[in-house]
Nucleic acid binder design. Structure first.
Length: 569
RNA sequence: UGGGGAGUCGCCAAGUGGUCAAGGCACGGGUCUUUGGAACCUGUAUACGUAGGUUCGAAUCCUACCUCCCCAGCCA
């Protein structure tokens, strides 16, 4: 009984990961026989780039299909040519593929169904369930009523079927200007649910459509296209966010009037992240006004931006697993996102040494001109990553913040007279500080202990700190871009009258650091490759890199307990 | 004031009448350490919106109330 086996497996898997209300609803539908299979879809509108919030929807849609051995479609809801562009279609496809959701050969467009939708509209008109309205947009709004008052019928509401048919045909044939008339469903202008007050089904748009060109000048509204598109594709579970909850009665109404196959819509809470904005309108504003370099700016919560920043699909997936699925309004702490990427990259990113804010160190007793190749572990979390050689010589760079002339209590890095270890190198002791005319520290004089090669003291003596370093003569110059949250407030929506979210834009969200010195193995690093710079954080090679001048985006810092100690002091 | 949703620790989130108050993040201690990373151990004696009620027993059932979110595009 292969079928039973499949069902059992799917159930076991979903139970193993903890079941959410959607999983339970689907299990119920399968058990009662409402559906005998699972088929979901992700329905983006190609009017912008996908962001981390969409990733949640994709993981739920695709994840449910996988969990139940079902299918998953990608369908663009391209019903508004005024706002949609091919660039966005391409970008969205790339992002979803990157996330790992697989729609196989089922890439669809709502525009594929324009003809069918048109026929169905005619069917509704014939049934006396739709009419052409000549009220202006303003008048329609006026007639709609308010949240507490019922609306009023349009004077055109009871036109004879024949007249509606004729008018609708002429709408399709381009005989009317934009805004002159619309097709409306005839439901109930007094319905408490405003979506049922004779919603517009078609409006006239003399716009070139990315896919259908100038074939149509009437375009279906989302509410008219969406449910039927799901129906056409045989979707069993139309999973969407909470905001569509009160559209469900309308979708059900259309399906019922048409007498076609009915999917089941289930709504879940949207994904919201602290310290960021996710509304398309706002993201577009950030891009258009130049507050970021583009949709893929590494500070952006877009998938394109996060990819460039160095985030992995796996980390995003883990985040969604941890966040879970519910109907409660919630804001996810951005610290959880950071935790996910650190956890992932800790396991897989190779380590390298990079000095971002260099301080020159001369090892006085190290022979001039001598160069040694020391062995360094590529990834202590993954033995198979192997080893590499790093050149060591008399003049090195260390991090400025790894030295203090007058160290406070818990600072145990380098200081005058103190001995520390250079990772994989030697123990060194600071013997002198060289300053410029302004009193700035420009160079450290040190001695090394030749007995400590590799970083071990044969006499067993300990040092409290291990520093990363780079040989000055061998270092590759690099640029590092450090990012902070784009907003200074955890909820950029907390605004007074007349303010807007730009109030919280973080002026220091990008800091370019250069020249930095990185170990020679990083020359020519491939854009997109990720590394952990020891003791600093995770970095991803930016496409702006050139062979002799790599550019790194800081994906995330390492957890920094010293920073906390400092803050506490 | 119409309709639709939601309220469990600082943030997510399990729990669906009987070891009930999971788990993760964050935060605090500690062990270990050639990354002040990672890993490991450990802590946060009143976290179940409020008030009643049903019951031997309620976060879980009932009633009322409170708070928050969404809806009045020819956007999706």
């Amino acid at each position: 009984m292969p079928e039973d086996t499949t069902t059992t497996t799917a159930t076991a898997e979903t139970e193993a990961t903890g079941s959410d209300f959607i999983t339970r609803a689907i299990e119920e539908d399968l058990k009662t026989g409402r559906y005998d299979r699972v088929h979901t879809r992700f329905p983006p509108e190609p009017n912008g780039y996908l962001h981390i919030g969409h990733a949640k929807a994709i993981y739920i849609d695709y994840g449910m299909a996988v969990a139940f051995g079902g299918k998953f479609n990608l369908r663009f809801d391209d019903t508004n040519p005024a706002k949609e562009e091919q660039e966005y279609i391409d970008g969205i496809i790339k992002d979803i593929a990157w996330l790992g959701a697989d729609w196989e050969d089922r890439l669809f467009f709502a525009s594929d169904y324009f003809e069918q939708l048109y026929e169905w509209a005619v069917q509704l008109i014939k049934a006396g369930k739709a009419y052409v309205d000549h009220l202006s947009a303003d008048e329609i709004r006026e007639h709609r009523g308010t949240l507490t008052e019922p609306g009023r019928n349009s004077p055109y509401r009871d036109r004879p079927v024949e007249e509606n048919l004729d008018l609708f045909e002429r709408m399709k044939n381009g005989e009317f200007a934009e805004g002159e008339c619309v097709l409306r469903a005839k439901i109930d202008m007094a319905a408490p649910n405003i979506n049922l007050r004779d919603p517009v089904m078609y409006r006239i748009l003399h716009d070139e459509h990315p896919r259908t060109g100038d074939q149509w000048c009437i375009y279906p509204m989302y509410d008219w296209a969406h449910g039927q598109s799901d129906s056409i594709e045989g979707i069993t579970h139309s999973l969407c966010t909470l905001e569509y909850e009160h559209h469900r009665p309308l979708y059900d109404w259309f399906i019922e009037q048409l007498g076609v196959y009915a999917p089941r819509q289930i709504e879940f809470a949207p994904f919201i992240l602290s310290y960021t904005v996710l509304s398309k309108r706002r993201l577009i504003k950030l891009v258009n006004e130049g507050h970021v370099s583009g949709w893929d700016d590494p500070r952006m919560p877009t998938l394109a931006g996060m990819r460039r920043r160095g985030y992995t699909p796996e980390a995003i997936h883990t985040l969604m697993d941890l966040v879970g699925v519910s109907k409660a309004n919630s804001v996810v702490d951005i610290a959880l996102l950071e935790h996910c990427i650190r956890q992932d990259l800790n396991k897989r990113a190779e380590r390298r040494m990079a000095v971002l804010r260099p301080l020159r160190v001369v090892i006085e007793n190290y022979p001039e001109g001598q160069v040694e190749e020391v062995e360094a572990v590529n990834n202590p979390e993954d033995e198979s990553a192997g080893m590499r050689k790093v050149p060591f010589s008399r003049v090195l760079y260390i991090e400025q913040e790894d030295f203090m002339e007058n160290p406070p209590k818990k600072f145990y890095r380098l200081a005058p007279g103190r001995e520390v270890r250079l990772r994989y190198g030697y123990f060194i002791t600071c013997t002198g500080v060289v300053k410029d005319a302004q009193g700035n520290i420009v160079e450290l004089r040190c001695t090394y202990d030749p007995e400590t090669r590799g970083g071990y003291a044969p006499d067993g003596r300990k040092v409290k700190a291990t520093l990363h370093w780079v040989s000055a003569a061998h270092a590759v110059q690099a640029e590092v871009r450090e990012y902070d949250y784009l907003f200074t407030h955890e909820d950029p929506n907390v605004l007074q009258e007349g303010e807007n979210f730009m109030k919280y834009l973080n002026p220091n969200s990008l800091q370019v650091v250069k020249p930095c010195y990185v170990e020679p193995s990083l020359a020519g690093a491939e854009p997109g490759s990720r590394y952990q710079f020891e003791r600093l954080g995770y970095y991803c090679v930016d496409p702006d890199s050139s062979r002799d001048r790599p550019v790194f985006n800081r994906t995330a810092t390492l957890r920094d307990t010293w920073a906390k100690v400092q803050q506490a002091q």
